[in-house]
């Protein structure tokens, strides 16, 4: 089970192929655990907001440069500067920056899969 009990549209679409579904959730969980549940919630919310997807705002504060980086992922990933990335590394460290990049990119891809209603496509709807 994923952090927060929400597996997302890709895992849901894989319910008929349990081996791949379990491996996808294990990968996603590893990325979320490496970043930490609180920051994952902020990052996923930031990405969802950019996509205009309904998302409940998490409690608490999040590091500003880190959230700004996550917000660039959906439509401006090639425009992130070295300086912006360095500010994130200064906030959360190099090792968590790696996890952040994976988590934000996955959040973006999952929003997009949800927006085409991948699960309904698989269900024949």
């Amino acid at each position: 089970m994923s952090a927060g009990g929400v597996s997302g549209p890709v895992a849901a679409a894989l319910s008929g192929t349990p081996d791949l579904g379990a491996k996808y959730e294990a990968f996603r969980d590893a990325a979320h655990e490496a970043l930490g549940a609180q920051l994952v919630a902020h990052v996923r919310h930031a990405v969802a907001e950019v996509h205009g997807v309904a998302s409940t705002a998490p409690h608490g504060e999040a590091p500003a440069a880190t959230i700004a980086y996550a917000r660039r992922m959906p439509f401006e990933h090639t425009a992130i500067t070295d300086e912006e990335a360095a500010a994130v590394v200064a906030e959360i460290g190099e090792v968590r920056f790696v996890a952040l990049s994976v988590v934000a990119a996955l959040a973006d891809a999952e929003c997009r899969a949800g927006m085409v209603d991948l699960e309904a496509l698989v269900d024949g709807a």
């Binding site: 894989l14 791949l20 891809a109 991948l118 698989v122």
Partner: peptide, 8 residues
């Protein structure tokens, strides 16, 4: 489903 995973 596999295609959706792949594109993701």
């Amino acid at each position: 489903a596999e295609l959706g995973l792949g594109v993701t």
